[in-house]
Simulated assay, not measured.
Amino acid sequence: MSETLAGSAVIVTGATGGIGAAVARMVAAEGVAVVAVDLAVDRLDRLLADLPGAGHRSVAVDLRDLATHDRILDAAGDTGRPLAGLAHLAAVLRRRHRLEDITEEDWDLQVDTNLKATFFLNRAVGLRLAAAGNGGAIVNLSSQGWWTGGLGGSVVYNAAKGGIVSMSRGLARTLAPQRVRVNTVAPGFVDTEMMRAGMTDEQLAASVAMVPLGRMATPDEIADAVVYLLRPGARYVTGATLNVSGGQLMY
């Protein structure tokens, strides 16, 4: 059995972000047709122009609009390749360092994007993979905050990320008979625009000081974990949460 994803299609959401772009580059380098999903058309165009290989597609949508999920599956079908999986990395973080500053709109934005849209896209892709009969893999991005509760004004964000872990386990059990695997990757601090947004240099330094390895991860280091779980070599891994936090979270 091949241990690579070559010749297949993989959907990558949040594809123009730091981790998303790293995942897209890694799977494209394996001979995968990437279906890149994000909000901004111009950033998607730049990403696709830089990807190795051919057959890539882009879909510019707000995943909170559940009606757009069919467009993503249609784009995967347009590649002419069998769909192998989904790397669902799209997320939004709105930091509020004081609890009294959190609004209902803050809650709705983060929970609808990070949890509600995750479930419905997972369901659509999972059912498509199950119907095809070839198995496949879904990898959702959580956070070390699913366990710790979140730091740096991210309580609502990590409430949703905790929901992703529980939801992914439930989907893993449900889809296992069809050989569709569902796992999560829980990063610690990663050097991305999202991580740095809304934090002073002092707050960022205090966060990094909690990491035993003494630094933030690079996007590629998180992408390595995501791509491992997508590959056929991880065929006996499902319902797992892979902690990639530099030792910040140990369990």
Rank of each mutant, 00 (worst) to 15 (best):
V35H: 09
R46H: 07
L51G: 06
A49N: 10
A60P: 05
D45S: 15
P52C: 04
L63E: 00
R46G: 09
L63Y: 03
V41N: 06
L51F: 13
L47I: 07
P52H: 08
A40L: 14
D65S: 09
A40E: 13
D45A: 15
A60L: 03
R46D: 12
P52E: 12
D38L: 06
D65I: 01
G53W: 07
R43I: 01
A40N: 14
D65Q: 14
L63N: 02
R43G: 00
R43Y: 00
L63I: 11
A60Y: 04
A36F: 11
V35L: 14
D65A: 11
R57S: 06
S58K: 15
R46Q: 15
A36R: 04
L47C: 02
D38F: 05
G55W: 06
L63G: 01
R57W: 09
V41K: 13
R43P: 02
L39Y: 07
V41P: 11
D38E: 04
A49L: 14
D62S: 12
L39K: 13
V37N: 00
R46N: 09
A49W: 05
V35T: 09
A54G: 12
A54H: 13
R43A: 14
V61G: 08
G53H: 10
L48E: 04
V35S: 06
V61E: 02
R57G: 00
G55D: 06
L63F: 03
D62G: 08
V37C: 02
D62E: 14
R43D: 03
R64I: 02
L44W: 08
D50E: 15
S58R: 14
L44I: 12
D42Y: 05
R43W: 08
P52N: 10
V37L: 02
L39P: 03
S58D: 07
L39A: 14
A36S: 11
G53M: 08
P52A: 14
V35Q: 07
H56C: 05
D38K: 00
A36K: 07
V61F: 08
D65T: 06
A40Q: 15
V35R: 08
